[in-house]
Amino acid sequence: MTECVDLSVELAGVRLKNPVVVASGTFGFGREYGQLYALSELGGICCKGLTLHPREGNPPPRIAETPMGILNSVGLQNPGVDTFIARELPELRRHDLAVIANISGNTPEEYGVICGKLSEAGVDLIEVNISCPNVKAGGLAYGTKPELAAEVTEVAKRHASVPVMVKLSPNVTDITEIAKAVEGAGADALSLINTLRGMRIDVNTRRPILHMNTGGLSGPAVLPVAVRMVWEVAGAVKIPILGMGGVAKGEDAAQLMLAGASAVAVGTACFDDPFVPLKVRDGLTEIAAAQGLARISDLTGGVKPW
């Protein structure tokens, strides 16, 4: 019965053979988990966040476990966009999945330059991260101010010849404000949520576990926040949404899709079980089949609010 469900979805004009992609920063460039299963099982991969120049990231410790979640302060460690294009992209291209490049810049101009390079190199979609809470310059500031978010989006759009998806921060009072500003500036899609700012303290040493003191919270703990925000944003904009935050099983993904997401990303749950993306895909298919849906995309926006 599950064979009857059409799993393909469209995200900003990009066709994904199934709606499950892996979230930026949790799956590297696919090489490591690609040793455990074929990357072509995935709908797509959001690559680790890229910057114009290589970055070393933040000092360790960078990871702290929390109730049903983790805090991270990796801080955009990456080899730089040029190395990605030279070494990682050709490798990813050997597999049948959508390649989504995730980018961060210190200035709107930097976002533009990176978009230009990636468009020329031929990624399927660019995910513009305006919301990483671990970087002092730029980053979060763009994600929390509608005018700045719009400016970055506009510059990115001007330099990109592939669709641009803007990734929103949940660390704001009203996420729909930012979403509308970004849509107005020409974004082709939105992805949400990035991590929520959090902190954990070792009560014996009285030191925060993370060297940066605070970090970004992800994992099952944030799922309800993600569902709520996707629902709010879906009601405020017309462009498609890649939903993420805490997805660990098919039902979680179905919630995000019902709330309005066209596709979902799995991140932190991979650390618990690398096979979660495939299990989410299969679980989602079962739910759709049990509900007699012909297409997985029929779930999108299907919530019936009270």
Binding site: P60, R62, N72
Partner: peptide, 8 residues
Amino acid sequence: VGACLGCA
């Protein structure tokens, strides 16, 4: 496994 860059 080297995917998250956490264990710096």
